[in-house]
Design a protein around this nucleic acid. Structure first.
Length: 657
RNA sequence: GCCGACGUAGCUCAGUGGUAGAGCAGCUCUCUCGUAAAGAGCAGGUCAGCGGUUCAAAUCCGCUCGUCGGCUCCA
């Protein structure tokens, strides 16, 4: 950098490790990276300056804390993908002249751009051509150039281009903060930052097209959203595509069919899953596990009907307020002309309030914990249905805890403990926990006493801390009736699903006028806590199937052992082995078909049955079984009793007993 | 609900205007078998449904239903 000796000013750059270096004013992130190591400069994608991500070649004028961002940093990837989105936009403009652009941000995995193609449409089949054009453009290797533009100039540029979306975006910006980025023939309104050049985006991959409303508003134009991803190295793209393929293999809809777990029928109706015998075994095993845990914790099991009078839901506030997401009510008119009828229940809680209300409660009785695997029905929009994760009829592993405000924290701790016990038994180690709090800007939209809310929010915070749970707090996400704690996991395709939930409710006890009598003989309002560690049996099972790829732990496997006689001469022995297994409480079957052993094994392996017991003459003579474990080949020859002991020990261990 | 794609045998898929195909699964027979597919034969379809264009439609057009990818919503 040439600078005259007179006006050189130096600035101090602090690196992430705390070390300081001195540079001339106007130094760039690239220069700093090069000063540290040439290798770093080569891999640098952007630079973080005082917590803000900048272009690598943007001059730094003041003392700053600086971190060089590479592919290994989230912000580095985001910059890369953001630039890839611009490259795709340039390709689209070449292929579809006159296309208008909405927004094109990076997302967790890749990027998208929302575009208005006028009368033209784009389908999956067109993506290859766009991708090809992107590669072609990337080869030109031109820089992404940042320009600060006055507002009126920005407006006239997009007026001339006729892009009303960009104009609308500019409207909302202040003069002086508007920047354009230009690469080759493409100019876009953009905050940035971007990569130094297009040439780094060597391996783009466009994934799918979808409709998306402009600014997420369904009353406005629907744009075409194109999703893509890009990588600097071929190896990374290949790995990504491989993961995608693996995810497809794990899709619970595919495995559910192959393993005979559940099915759907057009006749029964969309979004109404039916559990096949094996899926039912799986679900009931899960339910029993949870029920047993709950009994240890003082829950009481209840059973309530699947429908209720409209009046129940008028009192609870669910009807007609949430009418669009309910199946239409079964109506009849009473003699006095009053409309009355029944509703398929969208929730279990109104019924449970009536169980609580059926008896007088002393403070000594609290907390009352009413549990039910309650089936509910919600009329989800048709476009939202999918597999077991979004359905119209599902069973919540529900319970409602009626307690005093002082007991909220203790109950939360117990439910967190229960949830963690359950998740760990199912080998879920990757999940997120989120505490949803009131929106400090809109405090009036919440029901219930302000002091109670504050106390409950603090109780949840402390409960999570004391249980060693790492939770993120999100203000504004609370329901109108109370704060909550949610557990979220990702499915095989990286989509995030809410599973377990714990919610405080000040609303229903009020609406149903629920009371208990305190120590001074005063009637008091209990707090209600809704909680479901799995969320719904359907969604949870769907996510579980993907989580383990259909290879269920032995305790959950619908069929735990299959006995395979080598020939029909050994069918009787196989049956007697099977009987012994069943007598020991194991789920076992015999494959007495006229097939070869090889065939029977292949069949059992594809069905992902944990144990196969091959029996022939040697086993009959010795009273043993030849044990083969799923995915591991033959292991041991054991006596039937020893095998039973082993598998039972394994099951106990899996269930955390 | 909206945008886009798709719908052929139980499953996976071929078939672009001229008599509906394959592999696997199923059934029958033969083989009685030692760790991931024995052999032969048979059966199986209103090409999602309805309507239209045409001498002729799985194929072209329209509507309906369903599925998939998103958007939106989720007490």
């Amino acid at each position: 950098m040439a600078a005259s000796p007179v006006d050189v000013r130096t600035i101090t750059i602090t690196l992430p490790d705390g070390s300081e270096r001195t540079f001339e004013e106007g130094v760039t992130g690239y220069d700093i990276a090069a000063d540290i190591a040439m290798g770093l400069a080569r891999n640098a994608l952007a630079v973080k300056v005082d917590g803000e991500v900048w272009d690598l070649h943007r001059p730094i004028h003041d003392d700053a804390e600086v971190a060089i961002l590479t592919w290994d940093d989230k912000e580095g990837k985001q910059t890369f993908w953001h630039s890839a989105a611009h490259l795709m936009a340039e390709a689209l403009e070449e292929l579809y002249p006159g296309v208008k652009f909405g927004i094109g941000p990076p997302i967790d995995r890749g990027f998208y751009y929302d575009v208005d193609l006028g009368d033209r449409t784009i389908s999956q089949d067109d993506l290859g051509a766009i991708e090809k054009k992107m590669k072609e453009l990337a080869k030109r290797d031109v820089p992404y150039e940042r320009q600060e533009v006055p507002k009126d100039e920005a407006i006239s540029y997009f007026e001339e281009k006729g892009d009303e979306y960009k104009l609308e975006l500019i409207e909302d910006l202040e003069d002086g903060e508007i920047t354009f980025y230009e690469q080759g023939n493409f100019v876009d309104l953009c905050r940035g930052p971007h990569l130094p050049t297009t040439g780094d985006i060597k391996y783009p991959k466009l994934l799918n097209v979808a409709g998306a409303y402009w600014r997420g508003d369904e009353n406005r134009t629907q744009l075409t959203r194109i999703y893509g991803i890009a990588f600097p190295k071929k190896k990374e793209l290949d790995e990504f595509l491989e993961r995608l393929e693996l995810a497809r293999q794990r899709d619970h809809r595919k495995l559910g069919r192959e393993l005979g777990l559940f099915t759907f029928s057009k006749e029964v109706g969309p979004g109404l899953p039916m559990w096949l015998p094996k899926g039912t075994t799986l679900r009931e095993t899960l339910s029993k596990f949870l029920k047993d845990e709950q009994l240890k914790r003082g829950y009481q099991q209840v059973i309530t009907p699947h429908i209720g009078r409209l009046e129940l839901y008028r009192t609870s506030g669910h009807y007609p307020y949430y009418k669009e997401s309910q199946f239409p009510p079964m109506l009849f008119s009473e003699e006095d002309g009053q409309e009355d009828g029944y509703l398929l229940r969208p929730m279990n809680c109104p019924h449970h309030t009536q169980i609580f209300a059926a008896q007088h409660h002393s403070y000594r009785d609290l907390p009352v914990r009413l549990a039910e695997f309650g089936t509910v029905y919600r009329f989800e929009q048709s476009g939202e249905l999918g597999g077991l994760t979004r359905v119209r009829g599902f069973t919540q592993d529900d319970a409602h805890i009626f307690c005093t405000p002082d007991q909220v924290k203790g109950e939360f701790k117990d439910v967190i403990d229960l949830t963690l016990t359950v998740l760990s038994a199912l080998d879920f180690t990757e999940f997120k926990a989120q505490i949803s709090l009131r929106d400090p800007e809109n405090m009036e939209k919440y029901v219930g006493d302000d002091a109670l809310w504050s106390q409950a929010e603090q109780d949840i915070r402390e409960a999570t801390e004391e249980m060693g749970l790492d939770a993120v707090e999100v203000p504004g996400e609370a329901a109108f009736y109370g704060p909550k704690l949610d557990f979220m996991v990702e499915d095989a395709l990286g989509r995030e699903w809410q599973l377990g939930t714990i919610q405080v409710d000040y609303n229903l006890p009020e609406r149903f006028d629920l009371t208990y009598v305190d120590a001074s003989d005063e009637r008091q309002r209990p707090v209600m806590i809704h909680r479901a560690p799995f969320g719904s049996m359907e969604r949870f099972t769907g996510v579980l199937i993907e989580h383990c790829g259909g290879n269920f732990p032995t305790w959950l496997a619908p069929e735990q052992v299959r006995v395979l006689p080598i020939g029909s001469d050994f069918n009787d022995y196989a049956s007697s082995v099977c009987d012994q297994l069943r007598a020991a409480g194991l789920r076992a079957e015999v494959d007495a078909s006229d097939e070869t052993v090889g065939y029977k094994i292949r069949e059992a392996e594809t069905q992902k049955i944990p144990y196969m017991l091959v029996v022939g003459e040697r086993e009959v003579d010795a009273g043993t079984v030849a044990v083969r474990q799923h995915g591991k080949g033959q292991q041991d020859v054991l006596s039937v009793n020893v095998f039973i002991n082993r598998i039972q020990m394994e099951i106990d261990e899996e269930m955390g007993r």
